[in-house]
């Protein structure tokens, strides 16, 4: 474990709970893409299947449980409890256009052709594009609530910190996983446009609105 990975995991945890609290407190999921949340739930479920078979540490197991539970809870709040506030008219990204190609790629490019490894690879590839429905929804509505932009900033920062973690681990531990690094770069690049808007607008107290 290193500081980049620890801060990255905490940033990820923060993002998930900022969103969960926003929906719970405001009793509304306006401006939030349910499709992205479904993809994130799929990412965690396919990645943490080894939760009961491969114990790494208390921290590792605890975080896996928290990530799965909080993301499933978010999906529940969006599609069941506060379904009336779900903005399905703007959350129109066709996620099958993500899941199918990513599934195919996981079969073709992986470290090991075993079910668990292919599911892990699928999860890594899917996570890199899972935010697209959310970014697409913001581009359609033209703006995002400030709390939603904080959620996105923390979520985007987590994988950027993981990139630093991989640089650290490469030089100090000789650890390198090309699949995770490439997917992590794609994932972080997708946030660049948002990071620019966040830093130039939200940091100065303005609302995040995309140029019309």
């Amino acid at each position: 474990m290193n500081i980049f990975r620890l801060v990255g995991d905490l940033s990820h945890l923060l993002a998930i709970f900022v969103l969960l609290l926003k929906i719970w407190k405001s009793r509304s999921c306006a401006g939030v893409s349910g499709k992205s949340q479904i993809l994130f739930a799929l990412v965690f479920i396919t990645r943490y299947l080894d939760l009961f078979t491969n114990f790494i540490s208390v921290y590792n197991s605890l975080m896996k449980v928290i990530f799965i539970a909080s993301t499933v809870a978010t999906v529940y709040l969006m599609y069941i409890k506060f379904k009336a506030t779900y903005d399905s008219n703007h959350d129109t990204f066709r996620i099958e256009f993500l899941v199918v190609p990513v599934g195919g790629l996981a079969f073709l490019v992986n470290h090991d052709f075993t079910p668990l490894e292919i599911l892990w690879t699928f999860s890594i590839y899917l996570e890199s594009v899972a935010i697209l429905p959310q970014l697409f929804m913001i581009s359609k509505t033209g703006e995002a609530e400030t709390i939603t932009s904080h959620y996105l900033f923390a979520l985007g920062s987590y994988r950027a910190l993981y990139l630093l973690n991989w640089i650290y681990r490469y030089y100090f531990e000789g650890y390198f996983d090309l699949i995770a690094v490439v997917a992590g770069c794609v994932q972080t690049i997708l946030y660049c446009d948002f990071f620019y808007l966040y830093i130039t607008k939200v940091m100065w107290g303005k609302k995040l609105s995309l140029p019309a």
Partner: peptide, 10 residues
């Protein structure tokens, strides 16, 4: 190959 390395990352 990498898959043998324990997947210790989240």
């Amino acid at each position: 190959n990498d898959s043998d390395v324990n997947k210790d990352e989240l």
